[in-house]
């Protein structure tokens, strides 16, 4: 776990690309690109996993040295967990008892989301920009599916969703997690929560120039849980009937052995 991620140094070599020449234009054309690297595309974690930091290295290519010197570039790196339709339910009091009454299902929302940025994302770009690319805890796409009535309570359910995900440790942010280690090289630290979901995650890095979204780079990262517990869990989902029969056989044996061991007559 200590060596979750190592530097991919290849990106450093590429970073020495020639700086942009044209400077006359007020709105320079986009020449910047992001390169990111992680040492592995698969992480194996055991059941005693308590969470870990994942370090991602990257470089801005084709940057404008003047803008870089003025710190006009911002980088946001997100580790998005596997996506699933997630339902938020709300309890209401009915005849004195608390009952799930209303619900809303968000289409393909990430199970986990860990954000790391050069500074607070809401200071990096306007909300409209962040919403359109779905970057930031307050800006991830949460599209309800199915019947939603007049839609007046969408924001309540969205807020509840984010709050529950944040308190559960699934959604995290670190506004100082991206640091420049040289002029155009950066290091981003994202947190893998203790209860990180199994499956394919995506490391997504975004480059902003003076509040404008410039480019994006994504890398897949598979999280594979290992150990006996995971084998049991896999068996329960892959071969449920055999698993159930095994559970019964185990119970029958336990009961039978007990009756033999403690036999009185």
């Amino acid at each position: 776990m200590r060596k979750l991620a190592r530097t991919l140094l290849a990106a450093l070599v590429l970073a020495s690309a020639a700086p942009v020449l044209a400077q006359e234009d007020k709105r320079p054309e986009i020449t910047e690109r992001l390169e990111i690297g992680i040492s592995t595309d698969e992480i194996a974690i055991s059941s005693d996993f308590r969470g870990a930091d994942l370090t991602i290295f990257g470089a801005i290519e084709g940057y404008d040295p003047n803008l870089l010197a003025q710190r006009k570039y911002d980088i946001v790196v997100a580790l998005e967990g596997p996506k699933d339709d997630l339902t938020v339910r709300r309890k209401e009091r009915v005849l004195g008892i608390w009952v799930n009454r209303r619900s809303m299902t968000f289409e393909l929302a990430p199970e986990s989301y860990s954000l790391s940025s050069t500074r607070n994302v809401d200071d990096i770009a306007p909300a409209a920009v962040l919403n359109s690319i779905g970057v930031g805890l307050q800006h991830i796409r949460l599209d309800p599916i199915g019947y939603i009535g007049d839609g007046s309570n969408i924001s309540q359910f969205r807020d509840a969703f984010r709050r529950l995900k944040e308190t559960g440790g699934f959604y995290q942010r670190d506004p100082g997690g991206v640091q420049f280690i040289s002029a155009s090289l950066f290091k981003a630290t994202v947190r893998l929560p203790a209860n990180v979901p199994n499956g394919t995650h995506v490391v997504r890095a975004h480059l902003f120039r003076d509040g404008v979204f410039i480019s994006e780079k994504a890398l897949p990262l598979r999280v594979v849980k290992t150990g006996l517990e995971q084998m049991i869990s896999n068996a329960a989902y892959a071969n449920p009937v055999s698993y159930g029969i095994l559970a019964v056989v185990l119970a029958a044996l336990t009961g039978w052995i007990a009756s033999v061991v403690f036999r009185k007559d």
Partner: peptide
Amino acid sequence: DLVVTPEDFYSIVSAG
């Protein structure tokens, strides 16, 4: 437990 006001009215479940 059924009658006491819950700490949180909301809960999340995954469809899968």
